[in-house]
Simulated assay, not measured.
Amino acid sequence: MISTEWGAPRVFGNGFKMEDVQAGHYGHQLHVWDWTKHTRIQSLDLGEDGQIPLGIRFLHNPESGQALLCCGLSSSILRVYKAEGGQWETEKVIQVGSKKVKGWMLPEMPGFISDIVISLDDRFLYFNNWLHGDVRQYDITDIHHPKMVGQVFIGGSIVKGGLVTVVEDTELDNQPDPLIIKGRRIPGGPQMIQLSLDGKRLYVTMSLYSAWDKQFYPDMIRSDQ
């Protein structure tokens, strides 16, 4: 089994502060366990590429010995694999760039990838950017060099009409339009995702954690509830 690190509950339970990251209260390691002996056999320090590692998903092919890992704060996808000699190693295969912004808590906004899913045929990877607001589809036929083949914005912090102004963006020419369903603007950003078994439908939820929802998406908390 391979486990990831988020952070100290006493810290993230009160909302996100960059000072807590700098103080070392958030994770940047993976831990490999012997499931038969219930002992830890290896820990991998992911460094700057692996700040706040969250979801890890193995390829479905039982002979592959590979997994993909999403790292929230660093907004990266790492390939986790067993190398010669039996040790586990990582390599970064996707990096989502931060956007320079005004009207937000920091001058640069990371995508904050919090969940990933791999299609049953191991052909496609799907992941979310909870802060930017988009869900992406990548072709991982060549897992060393994934290629983005789909993208849709579902809420997020950089949509038009919000408090945030994007002043520099290496990916988009304009801020995306907000998602409107039945006349209502959808608050929050895409978080947990699940792909149907036939690979034709992707289900998305918008809430990450109540304290973080209130901090980053206060419109999600309705006054009449």
Rank of each mutant, 00 (worst) to 15 (best):
H145C: 11
P190M: 13
K147R: 15
G150A: 11
D122G: 04
S196Y: 15
R57V: 13
I154L: 11
V152A: 13
L172M: 05
D139H: 04
Q137I: 12
H60L: 01
N174A: 14
T90I: 14
N128K: 09
L195Y: 08
P176I: 11
L163A: 15
G85L: 13
G65S: 00
L78H: 01
T165D: 12
G155M: 01
K147F: 09
D169E: 03
I180Y: 08
T141A: 13
A67I: 08
I143K: 10
C71R: 07
S119D: 07
R79I: 00
P187S: 01
I180G: 03
L120M: 10
I116Y: 09
M105K: 12
Q191M: 08
G111Y: 06
P176N: 02
D169G: 02
I193N: 03
S114I: 08
H145R: 15
L78W: 03
P176W: 13
K92A: 10
F153Y: 15
D173V: 10
L106R: 07
I154H: 07
S98C: 07
L195T: 12
L78F: 05
V152L: 13
T165M: 03
E108F: 04
A67V: 05
Q194R: 14
D177E: 15
I113Q: 14
G183I: 06
I118V: 11
K182P: 02
D173G: 09
L163W: 10
R123G: 02
R136A: 12
V101R: 09
P62W: 06
H144F: 10
L179D: 01
H145K: 15
P146L: 08
L106F: 14
G155N: 05
Y138P: 00
H60T: 02
R185H: 08
P107M: 05
P178G: 04
V152E: 11
I180T: 12
Q151Y: 11
R79T: 00
Q175Y: 00
I140Y: 05
E84G: 14
K102F: 09
K160A: 02
H132Y: 03
G97D: 14
M105H: 09
Q194W: 10
D142L: 03
T90W: 08
G72T: 12
K92D: 12
I113T: 14
H145Q: 15
N61I: 01
F58R: 09
V149K: 06
L197C: 09
T141C: 04
N129Y: 03
S157Y: 07
R79S: 08
K182L: 11
Q194D: 15
V135S: 02
D142S: 09
I116K: 02
T170K: 12
M109N: 07
V93F: 10
G111A: 14
I94N: 05
G161N: 00
I116F: 09
Q87P: 00
P110Q: 04
P107H: 02
D173K: 10
G72Y: 07
